[in-house]
Design a protein around this nucleic acid. Structure first.
Lengths: 253, 253
DNA sequence: CGGTCTCTTGACCTCTGTCAAGTAGAGTGG
DNA sequence: CCACTCTACTTGACAGAGGTCAAGAGACCG
């Protein structure tokens, strides 16, 4: 794999990737898995940069990311943009809207994306009927929170080089949770400007940082595209530990 | 944790502050409120800086913050500390432990605190029996996530002066949600070092920033203690908007 | 009254931001 | 196949916010 826009199966089991995501941290009996795959949905394709949910708006459905990447962003009064979360294939994008009517941030497609739009009604019925699914969904939300805390540490306390290396490690680890095969390398689908908004830096400084990382062989750039070249080296630079991702870690009770 | 010999109390007066916190964003019928106040708990007092939950550890109870302040913190490999959340009276501190067994961060008392320790068993029973309570708890978790995203914006994209002003506004707004009277002024119970770890800055620069804010009359310092002097001025400096706190905003469905 | 902790301040340094010009691909149209 | 254009990337020179170091001053405490 390593191809971020790898086409998904179109045999009617599109939601299987959501099940796979939930299984990466929660246990789900077969019946619950089937109930998830039986959710009603409509598929929608959006081009890069199109808006999925606007800050302040309301929706009556939750999107599941079937393929491609998306992100949450916020703007400061001075016009600065901060990307506050990155969503990878299999992630539910907006479960929050089931509980909080107004969006506190905007949600946008990073690449071309395919979404499965699941009506709130169907979600509410499923969560009420199947506690194990409800639990898995809560765990998913909690893990997103944990990732957010790691990002606060990353942006607040690590320098540019370490910060970028840490993010790239996280990206690979997260993709591996839903990937068919183990990923060691990857073409990163972010522009330097997006990377800058993600890391709390400027595009110019991202450029310098990537150049430095390329110099150490951690990263490669071919035809303006960023590739992970040496994941172990990146992990070493960032002192990366994946504990905060809580893989297979949700059997408390 | 969990004093083995401390008697479990069912004195609802103490948990009323938790009910008040939940009511600040969710609707709860009287029966649900009573069920919350009927939760069994033991009271525990900790001094400033004592640890409530250590990173990597497991617990069998969730703490509710009855009085005082607490915080979540993470350490980077280089030794930097980042405070990733601040908890105020009425906040549940560790609901996450109901769903994720290992703590991904540490939880510490900022001031002297009083905690109500509620056993997981009792929580699970309550959440299973009372969907409205479960819903309110999920909303509480989601709002903490929203605050975390605002912090990412704050640390990633605002300069020191604006950043500190924004945090102080948030603090006052959050305290007002459980306060008896409207707060306009406040003695901030944080050392400059803690403020630095909160803001992703150094103590020295916090000192300079506070001096500047004092110069504009936004803040006052008497006997080394920081006070909010002019909340409107702070809100203006930070272009503060409280939408992300989702006050009285949880009637989706 | 000495010890300790936090705050304060100045001098200096460096990481990251700003500005501005230039380059390389990808796409478009002739 | 070649301009032309657009966008993203690249680079250098310079600026500045914030970090580092170090010394001193107030508080608080036993």
């Amino acid at each position: 794999m390593g191809e971020p826009h790898a086409p998904e199966r179109r045999d009617g089991h599109l939601l299987r990737i959501l099940v796979k995501k939930l299984l990466s941290h929660s246990l789900l009996p077969a019946e619950d898995r089937q109930a998830i795959e039986a959710l009603p949905f409509t598929v929608r394709t959006l081009e890069a940069n199109e808006s999925i949910v606007r800050e302040g708006s309301r929706t009556d459905s939750c999107a599941i990311l079937l393929s491609g990447f998306a992100f949450r962003a916020k703007l400061s009064a001075e016009g600065g943009r901060q990307i506050v979360a990155l969503k990878t294939p299999g992630d539910p994008l907006d479960l929050q809207s089931l509980f909080l009517p107004t969006a506190d941030h905007s949600l946008q497609a990073l690449t071309r994306v395919e979404l499965a739009l699941v009506p709130h009604r169907a979600w509410n019925a499923l969560l009420a009927a199947r506690p194990a699914v409800a639990r898995a969904v809560v765990v998913d939300v909690l893990i997103e929170g944990s990732i957010g805390r790691e990002w606060l540490l990353n942006i607040g306390r690590r320098d540019a080089r370490t910060r970028v290396a840490h993010f790239l490690c996280e990206l690979v680890h997260r993709l591996n949770r839903v990937a068919l095969d183990r990923i060691e390398t990857l073409e990163v689908p972010l522009t330097q400007e997006q990377l800058a908004d993600l890391m709390g830096l400027t595009p110019v400084h991202i450029n310098r940082t990537l150049k430095a990382l390329e110099g150490e062989g951690a990263v490669a750039r071919v035809a303006r595209r960023l590739h992970i070249a040496d994941l172990d080296r990146l992990a070493e630079i960032a002192s990366f530990s994946s504990l905060y991702l809580h893989g297979h870690d949700a059997q408390a009770g």
